[in-house]
Design a binder for these strands. Structure first.
Lengths: 137, 137
DNA sequence: GTCTGACATGAAAGTGCCTCCTTGTGGACT
DNA sequence: AGTCCACAAGGAGGCACTTTCATGTCAGAC
C-alpha cells in the first residue's frame, strides 16, 4: 500500500501489480462511479430491458445520458446491446456475465450504505456544527 | 427497482426506502467515488498516519487534495482527525469503526477489478475496433 | 405532407472536481 | 531578516461529466 502509485493519465491505466490493489479499486470506481452507471447495472440485474423500459426504470435519467451510459458499459464489457431490425427499431440491453459478477458487490455496497446512513448523517451534522466555516458539502 | 427514484438535489439525499437499495449505492459512490477518497481509506486501513505519511503513501496526491479529501471523510465519519499541540503542529488520521467497516468491501472491489482487468481491456479494444467513430474513452 | 415510436447523436451551457500555485500560521533555528 | 517543518486554506483555470434542447434516421399510419 505504501508503495502504491498511480500514473495519472487520461485513461487512468492501473499499474496492475498484485501488491497494488488500490489501483484496481480506482479503476472500478472510474468505471461505475459516475452518476448513472451503477443504477443501470442494478436495473439490468432484474433482467433484460429495452431502451425505454430501462429509462423508465431509472428515475431522472435522460435519453441522452442513458445512451451514453449504456454505451460506456457496453464498451467495458458489462452490458450487451442487441439490435432488433424491427419497425420501429428496438434495442435491448442485458448484463454480461462480467456485469453480473459485479452485482453482488453493488448489493453489498448498497446494504452498507443503508446500514450506516443514519450514522453518517449524524456525523455530518456534528461536523457541520463544529465547523460552521467549512463549506464542503 | 423499477419503482426507484432519486430526487437529484445538491446533497443527493437517498430516499432511504428499503426497496430502493440503488439509492444507497449512489450515496456510497458519491462518498467514496471521487479520485482520492478510497485511496486514503486503503492507506489508513494499514494504520494511523500523520499527514505527511499519508501523503507520501498515496502517489500523486497534492497537499491540497489530501486536505480536502480527509476533511470530507472526517465529515462523513469515516476518519478521525487528531491534532497534537506540538511544535511543529502534528495531525494524525485514522479510520473510524465506520470507515473500517468499509474496507472489506473496498478490498473486494479491488479484487474484482484485478480479476477482470484483462477481460475489460479486451472488451474495450473489441468495442473500439467495431466502433471507430465512437470517442468515448 | 405530418405524425408517431424507437433510439442515436450534435451543440452548447452549467457544474464541480481536480490541479497548480500561492499564501498563511506558529514555532524554532541560523 | 530568512529558512525550515507541519499542515491548512485561497484563487484561478482546465477538464469532463451532466443537462438541456434540438435534430436525425427509419418505417408505417393517416
Amino acid at each position: 500500500m505504501s508503495d502504491s502509485h498511480i500514473q495519472v493519465t487520461a485513461s487512468l491505466d492501473p499499474c496492475g501489480l498484485d501488491e497494488h490493489p488500490d489501483c484496481g479499486i480506482r479503476d472500478v470506481l472510474t468505471r461505475v462511479g459516475d452518476k448513472w452507471s451503477v443504477l443501470v447495472i442494478v436495473e439490468l440485474a432484474s433482467g433484460i430491458r429495452r431502451f425505454r423500459e430501462l429509462q423508465r426504470g431509472i428515475d431522472g435519467i435522460s435519453q441522452r445520458m442513458l445512451t451514453l451510459t449504456v454505451r460506456r458499459l457496453e464498451r467495458d464489457g458489462l452490458v450487451t446491446r442487441t439490435v432488433y431490425p424491427t419497425v420501429p427499431a428496438q434495442v435491448t440491453y442485458e448484463l454480461t456475465a462480467l456485469g453480473s459478477s459485479l452485482t453482488h458487490l453493488v448489493k453489498q455496497l448498497a446494504d452498507w450504505s443503508l446500514d450506516h446512513r443514519e450514522t453518517i448523517g449524524r456525523s455530518r451534522a456534528r461536523y457541520d456544527a463544529q465547523h460552521p466555516d467549512n463549506e464542503i458539502h
